[in-house]
Write a protein that binds this DNA or RNA. Structure first.
Length: 418
RNA sequence: GUGAGCGUAGCUCAGUUGGUUAGAGCAUCUGGUUGUGGCCCAGAAGGCCGUGGGUUCAAAUCCCAUCGCUCACCCCA
């Protein structure tokens, strides 16, 4: 038997309504904040991600689905969306049409990681990008939108973490301070953290090992080394979040794994999804557009993992959807009336009613059981004595009441059902 | 890439110290008198016990390998 590739999942009809529910809330909230949807191809030239996300990042160096197409072009299935949106922004000169572009997306992403709870190789993200303004109010808006979406989904067990990474220059200065601090403690760190010392020193704060955490307790904090502008912007973000009633924690250890982040970064964590607890993450990327060949333009955005969010919703039992139902099930009493049933079905369907009937030549009883299983509001009996008298029998499945209609009075049946 | 756990019907799981035709619940299908659902009752269908090899008179059960799944590290959404 051929099975779905490792780390990929089918979304079956029994799951789809939860996805629609999520997607509708996402679209509503983005419309609420005047973000417009953008759709980009699932694959791009590999160079886009290498340059945008950073060669040294885990995503680029070991997780991308990269292959040569038949014309020997290196192609990569998109592992994240920001680089793709920025590419489209530059390519179509969106910045010349209006100074600020507020964009959102819902799309599959691909990363070849080891699957785990809340982590897949093909997964789905929604997210937003606001390109063209340095206003920290937009940073806060990103947090507000994601928070609103989670609230509307009924999620409760959430923590919003924010941090500021500052500008590259102040960050470099800070990294040197951190290196100095750790220079005589380096050999006490775990092997994993010693690797981080060279690769991405900020990450040592993330270590889950107690001995590492003990060492880092007295380490200098990035927050204390921010440049003035980053510091002011961060204050504005905090102030706004407080005003609109979004609880948050400042986490100076919050480091994002993509190279392009500057200033504000944030994550929303759920305690209900296992160890892959970040439901969404994002931040400002004021240098990325220039890096990718556009005019220097500031931007800020976030991305949210839809599988993780739905997992959190399931584990918190945060919402329940009504059972799907149909309006009318047509019951064929006599053999030979198949095409009559289909014709009546066509009439009802043309009036936007959801209608189903039997295609398997089953007994009346079996058809009734099917109608019940489909949660039909009404069944319409076609056949028997009534039919030979020119009549049809309509039964309300909730209360069992039956009414007789003339065969040529389908309109009356339709208004009864509606 | 590293580590741990688990693979028996569509799903959730039983399967006694290795011992005949491998079970249950749910789901599916068919019935329970002339043409009517849910509840109930009766019956049916559905498994090379993940795959390959080994030990044994005998393997779902023990051993090895392999594949797959799950969780964790890592990383991230």
């Amino acid at each position: 038997m051929i099975k779905a590739v490792t780390g990929t999942k089918d979304i079956l009809p029994s799951d789809i309504n939860r996805w629609y529910y999520l997607e509708n809330i996402v679209k509503e909230v983005f419309a609420n904040f005047n973000y417009k949807e953008i759709r980009t191809p699932v694959f791009e030239e590999t160079a886009l991600f290498a340059r945008g996300i950073g060669e040294g990042t885990d995503i680029v160096s070991k997780e991308m689905y990269t292959f040569l197409d038949r014309s020997e072009t290196s192609i990569t299935l998109k592992p994240e969306m920001t680089a793709a949106v920025v590419r489209a922004y530059i390519e179509h000169s969106l910045g010349t049409l209006q100074p600020l572009n507020k964009l959102f997306y819902i799309s599959p992403m691909f990363r070849q990681e080891r699957p785990q709870a809340g982590r897949f190789r093909q997964f789905h993200q929604f997210g937003a990008e606001a390109i063209g303004s340095t206003s920290p109010l937009l940073d806060a808006e990103m947090i507000e939108m994601s928070y609103n979406i989670f609230k509307q989904l009924g999620l409760k067990d959430l923590v919003v973490k924010i941090n500021s990474l500052g500008v590259p220059q102040s960050r470099e200065e800070y990294k040197n301070k951190l290196r100095d601090f750790l220079s005589d403690k380096k050999d006490k760190l775990t092997e994993e953290s010693r690797k981080r010392f060279d690769k991405n020193i900020l990450r040592i704060f993330d270590s889950k090992i107690e001995s590492d955490q003990e060492i880092m307790k007295n380490a200098p904090l990035l927050i204390d080394y921010l440049d003035e502008e980053s510091k002011n912007d961060f204050e504005i973000v905090k102030e706004y979040l407080t005003k609109v009633g979004i609880p948050f924690e400042v986490d100076s250890a919050l480091v994002r794994g993509l190279d392009y982040y500057t200033k504000t970064t944030f994550e929303v964590i759920s305690n209900k999804v296992g160890s892959q607890s970040a439901l969404c993450g994002g931040g400002r990327y004021d240098l990325l557009i220039e890096e990718l060949g556009g005019k220097p333009t500031p931007g800020v955005g976030f991305a949210a993992g839809m599988e993780r969010i739905l997992l959190a919703c399931e584990n918190e039992n945060s919402f329940t959807l009504p059972d799907p139902s149909i309006d009318v099930y047509l019951i064929r009493i006599d053999k030979g009336l198949e095409s009559t049933v289909a014709e009546i079905g066509s009439l009802l369907r043309s009036q936007k009613l959801s209608v189903e009937f039997d295609y398997l030549n089953r007994s009346t009883k079996a058809q009734m059981r099917e109608a019940n299983k489909l949660n039909a509001k009404y069944v319409l009996f076609i056949g028997g004595d009534e039919y030979s008298r020119g009549e049809l029998l309509l039964k309300n499945m909730a209360d069992g009441q039956q009414k007789i209609f003339k065969k040529d009075e389908i309109n009356k049946i339709i208004s009864e059902v509606k």
